[in-house]
């Protein structure tokens, strides 16, 4: 496990700022995603923040839309929209809400929140890129609880059938869903074997290890003619010791000043 560096800590500060601004959010589900989205946007995705509709861009879909605080923090940091918007999330008339909407937010490729939708939309985009002979790649980030949805496995079969090697799924495998442990609610194991059996090329990585994520994603596609999946082993609530691996921190509403102060303190002492 690598130590949390300043950029990861900075993005988590921004997530807490957004949580404070909106007074609510899926904080645990967002904190497990930080390094995944950071590495994608810093090192992997070909996107143009000042031209979000650039046809040849890579498409990124946060299928686990409830992790959007992190996406918002990263997109704002990259300049897709002003940083101030973060502090207004969930306010009346705000650009940013509790789940990301394509119509309102530059850089958001699909409206998500209802789980199990993003992969099939991404497959449609990947097929479109092939038909239009564009170099675009498609990245879909799913949760682990999200993999309970049957539609994910419909899409998994389809992506393999169409040999979409420009499509990558990243699973934020933080081992907790809303009620409790994934393995208790609906066990996904053997997860890597499941994806392999569905025809995908699989890698597993520590989803908080920036260098390992960079190295893994640098090897895409993992196999010619096969879609790729990266199972990212993560910690729900990563960076806040009292929230880590704690199902009570899946979603928080009525976040007060004392909560925010203790979160900021915890983040600064996190390693």
């Amino acid at each position: 496990m690598s130590a949390m560096d300043e950029r990861s800590r900075y993005l988590r500060r921004r997530i807490i700022d957004a949580l404070e601004g909106g007074g609510r959010g899926h904080i645990g589900s967002s904190l497990s995603l930080v390094e995944i989205l950071r590495v994608l946007y810093d090192d992997v995705l070909r996107v143009r923040p000042d031209e979000p509709g650039w046809p040849d861009r890579d498409r990124c879909i946060l299928s686990k839309g409830h992790g959007c605080l992190t996406w918002y923090a990263v997109l704002a940091d990259k300049g897709f929209f002003p940083q101030d918007e973060l502090l207004r999330q969930c306010h009346p008339g705000a650009m940013l809400g509790g789940h990301p909407e394509r119509a309102h937010i530059p850089g958001v490729e699909a409206s998500t929140g209802s789980l199990g939708h993003g992969l099939s939309i991404g497959i449609g985009m990947a097929l479109a890129a092939r038909l239009q002979r564009r170099p675009s790649r498609v990245f879909v980030i799913t949760g682990d609880g999200e993999l309970d949805e049957g539609s994910i496995w419909e899409g998994a079969m389809s992506a393999a059938k169409h040999r979409l090697d420009h499509l990558t799924v990243l699973v934020d495998y933080n081992k907790l869903q809303s009620y409790g442990l994934v393995k208790d609610v609906l066990d996904l194991e053997p997860l890597a074997d499941k994806w392999r059996a569905f025809g995908w090329a699989v890698r597993e990585v520590d989803g908080h290890d920036v260098a390992a994520l960079r190295e893994t994603l640098g090897q895409l596609p993992f196999a010619a003619g096969q879609p790729s999946v990266v199972i990212c082993h993560t910690v729900k609530g990563k960076g806040l010791d009292f929230a880590e691996f704690n199902p009570d921190w899946h979603h928080k509403a009525k976040v007060g000043a004392a909560d925010v102060a203790s979160m900021r303190e915890a983040l600064e002492r996190a390693e």
Binding site: S120, I121, G124, A128, Q132, S151, E154, G155, M157, S158
Partner: peptide, 26 residues
């Protein structure tokens, strides 16, 4: 053939895939 798809008994996926293609201009 590149514009003809037979996707199987997977209606949820089919509608999502159609949406993805429509977002790209199809």
């Amino acid at each position: 053939p590149e514009r003809f798809f037979m996707e199987g008994v997977a209606e949820q996926h089919i509608i999502g895939m159609a949406a993805g293609m429509a977002m790209e201009g199809f």
